[in-house]
Design a binder for these strands. Structure first.
Length: 283
DNA sequence: ACCCACCCCTGGGCGC
DNA sequence: TGCGCCCAGGGGTGGG
C-alpha cells in the first residue's frame, strides 16, 4: 500500500525517468483512471500531448508533475497504483490504465492499477501547487513542516490519535501501516483521545513518525505483494522491519506479548496489548 | 466547523 | 473444482 515512503520512491523514479522529456501520445485504457479529470479522457490527452515535464514533486501521497504549459499532471496511486518506466515494446500489463509515449522514442510511462482507487488528472495552472492538492498538509519529512502547529492542531482535535494521524489535512503521507508502526514505537493505543495527549507525548509521537518514514524510505518502502513497486519494478524491503502491522499473534519485539488485531473503521489495527493499553473509551 | 460513515474497486485466499 | 464471502484501504462526499 503506497504511503509516503513508497510514493517518494516513485517520485524519484519519475525524476530519473521522465524529467525534461516531451509527451508525444497518451492512451487512456480505462476511464476510471482519469475520473478526477472532469473534462474527460480526450481532454486529458490533449493537454499532455507536446508538453514537457519540468519536475516531479510530491505532496503527501499525491504526485504532481509541472508541465511547460503551466499546468500540472497529478497522480495518486490509491491502493494498488504503479507508475512504471518501461521499454515501449514490453508486453502490456493486465491492469494497464494509461500509457504515455515520449517524442524521444525512449522508455514509456505506464499507469497500472489493479483496484482502480488511484487516478491521474491534468490541473490547469497547477505548476506551483495544484488546487486539488491544496487541502493536503505538508508531510513530516518536508523541511517546511511546522512541528508546533501540528502539535497544537492535534491536541485541539476531538478524535482518536490514529484517526488524526490518518487525517491528510493535519499531516500527510501516513497510512494504516505507518500509523500502526509509529503508535507502537510511541507505546500509544490509536484509540487514545487526542485531547489527552500531552505536548511532550505528541512531540515524541511525531519523532517516531519521522523515524519510521525515513527508515522505510531507506529500504525502498514496504511491499506486501506485487502491488507496490518502484518505477523500475523493484519491491521495497521494509516489511521485514515492521513491528506491528500485519503481526497478529506474533510476539511483540519489545515485551514478547502476542500482538492483537482490532477491527477499526472497516480495516485493521495492530498493536501490543501490554505496551499499548486500550483506553477506557477507545475512539 | 468539525466529525464520521459510506462508497468506490479488484483479486487472492479460504471455507465449504 | 468452483462458488461465494471476506479482506486490503485512501480520499471524496454528504449527512449529522
Amino acid at each position: 500500500m503506497p504511503e509516503l515512503p513508497e510514493v517518494e520512491v516513485v517520485r524519484r523514479g519519475l525524476e530519473r525517468g521522465i524529467l525534461g522529456r516531451t509527451v508525444q501520445d497518451v492512451q487512456v485504457h480505462h476511464p476510471r483512471a482519469v475520473r478526477r479529470h472532469d473534462a474527460g479522457a480526450r481532454d486529458f490527452a490533449d493537454l499532455l500531448r507536446g508538453r514537457t515535464v519540468l519536475a516531479a514533486h510530491r505532496r503527501g501521497k499525491y504526485l504532481w508533475l509541472p508541465l511547460d504549459s503551466g499546468d500540472a499532471l497529478t497522480g495518486h496511486l490509491g491502493m494498488s497504483g504503479q507508475l512504471l518506466v518501461v521499454a515501449s515494446d514490453k508486453p502490456v500489463e493486465t491492469h494497464l490504465r494509461i500509457r504515455f509515449g515520449f517524442t524521444d522514442g525512449g522508455r514509456e510511462l505506464r499507469f497500472v492499477d489493479q483496484r482502480t482507487f488511484g487516478g491521474m488528472a491534468v490541473v490547469a495552472g497547477g505548476a506551483e501547487l495544484p488546487s486539488t492538492l491544496a487541502h493536503i498538509a505538508r508531510d513530516p519529512l518536508d523541511p517546511d513542516f511546522d512541528d508546533q502547529l501540528f502539535i497544537s492542531r492535534l491536541r485541539s482535535k476531538s478524535t482518536g490519535v490514529k484517526r488524526a494521524l490518518l487525517d491528510q489535512t493535519l499531516v500527510s503521507g501516513i497510512g494504516n501501516i505507518y500509523a500502526d508502526e509509529a503508535l507502537w514505537r510511541a507505546r500509544l493505543h490509536g484509540g487514545r483521545s487526542t485531547e489527552a495527549i500531552s505536548r511532550l507525548k505528541a512531540r515524541e509521537l511525531l519523532a517516531h513518525v519521522r523515524d519510521v518514514l525515513e527508515e522505510s524510505l531507506e529500504q525502498g518502502g514496504t511491499s506486501f505483494d506485487a502491488l507496490y513497486v518502484s518505477t523500475e519494478g523493484v519491491s521495497g524491503l521494509f516489511e521485514r522491519s515492521l513491528n506491528a502491522y500485519g503481526r497478529e499473534g506474533e510476539p511483540c519485539h519489545r515485551c514478547g506479548a502476542p500482538l492483537r488485531r482490532e477491527a477499526w473503521m472497516n480495516r485493521s489495527s495492530y498493536s501490543c496489548p501490554e505496551c499499548q493499553p486500550r483506553p477506557r473509551t477507545p475512539r
